[in-house]
Write a protein that binds this DNA or RNA. Structure first.
Lengths: 229, 229
DNA sequence: TCCATATTTCGATGATAATCGAAATATTAA
DNA sequence: TTAATATTTCGATTATCATCGAAATATGGA
């Protein structure tokens, strides 16, 4: 019994340092980042960043990809994203001390990446819309796509058969810390994120994991999904 | 952004110490325990236990109830149970080094308490059975009871109307670390645990959060739920 | 080859936290 | 009132960890 606790403690330890928590939060944007950028964004030296990144890499929390002298670090594992989101459920709310902070918080609540899929109000609305139109139905820990759903996704150029063949959950749930409801994760969640970026319905915000909905996207989401962003 | 991370780090810190993780795991049995017992079970002195219990009480992770010279500590908040279960998802598996440990692990996987409801294989099978018989249906983050379900629960003396009036979720999901599927939490989950204990279908195992299914319980669960424990 | 850049490693420092012996406090039983 | 028990508090000790300056290593451009 003590061993299991030691393992739980070990995982919690990885998140319990404020620098590592900051790094992991940045990496929830789904991107891979070089050491120097992470160090700068968190406000620590590259040596300290390197120390923490090595620790998390060794624990299989994050991955590293080398390109020449650059080392790019990113989250490799959706379970870590879910642990971070579940922490944000129970973490005390941040005290907002400036208008800038308030706007940033709102932007994250509105739409953001959660590792490799869309989270926030947009993510939850998308799920609700797909459920209401019976393109998806819920069963156990996963959504199942309907025939109508397959037709629908094909009209926006998402090949659901191809997604099903991937070695990951097709369409799982992720509990959203800001909305307290689920949004769509898994292969379908990822495909939607990539497609909307491609269609320029959404775009990434520099140095943030917030997602901005474009005017084009507002129209597209309304028209195709019946979602008012 | 850094503030949010500090809050996440703060919560993770509470679990990151092996003594506190051990205490929290013991408290997942849903019982309240005195300081001296917790100290003994974890293998630390009462002073150390007192130090950790004070820390977690101050952070509203656990509650304390005084009775004379005794201070009884227990979990007051289902979210903490869910955080612990989610950690167990990503914690590396325990290396089994004895037959006793293996049996303990199996017992926990088979049936255990998760704070105030049934978890493990039994918990998941109960949920599946209730879904298959259409006593419960899934919608968003919660199960909804059907008319047939209300009739069913009343036959085993669980008053679902009364449960709905409680100030908590009626029938939420909790993702089971051992089965990787959901079991039933919330008011209904708690009522089922209490009723099965009352009916002597299950009984608590001393010094463990495992639950033992009795012969009587095996029959009852089979007959009433169609569950083979 | 030399220089610039990115990252890692080393070692020292300082901070923080968990531990427990001793003592204090609170409660209860005799 | 005294003694026993349970728990908390205090203070000292020890261990661990995050930090960064300096140096080393690796890669790439001139």
């Amino acid at each position: 019994m003590m061993k299991a606790n030691a393992n739980v403690a070990k995982v919690a330890t990885l998140v319990s340092d404020s620098s590592r928590a900051a790094i992991l939060t940045i990496l929830l944007d789904g991107r891979f980042h070089p050491v120097s950028d992470l160090a700068y964004m968190v406000g620590i030296t590259p040596q300290t960043a390197s120390y923490h990144l090595a620790k998390m890499t060794q624990a299989n929390v994050i991955d590293v990809e080398s390109q020449g002298r650059h080392r790019y670090y990113g989250i490799s594992n959706q379970e870590i994203a879910q642990v971070m989101e579940s922490f944000l459920q129970v973490a005390p709310p941040v005290e907002i001390k400036s208008l800038k902070q308030s706007n940033e918080e709102k932007a994250l609540r509105h739409a953001r990446t959660c590792y490799d899929h869309i989270a926030g109000n947009l993510g939850v609305k998308l799920k609700t819309s797909l459920m209401n139109q019976q393109f998806l139905v819920e069963k156990d820990n996963e959504f199942h796509i309907t025939s109508d759903g397959e037709i629908f996704f094909n009209t926006i150029d998402i090949d659901t058969n191809k997604l099903k063949k991937k070695r990951r959950m097709f369409c799982s749930k992720c509990l959203d810390w800001s909305e307290r409801r689920h949004h769509i994760a898994g292969a379908l969640g990822n495909a939607m994120l990539e497609k909307f970026l491609e269609l320029e319905w959404i775009e990434r915000v520099p140095k943030s994991r917030a997602l901005k909905i474009t005017a084009l996207g507002g129209n597209g989401l309304n028209e195709m999904f019946g979602v008012d962003p």
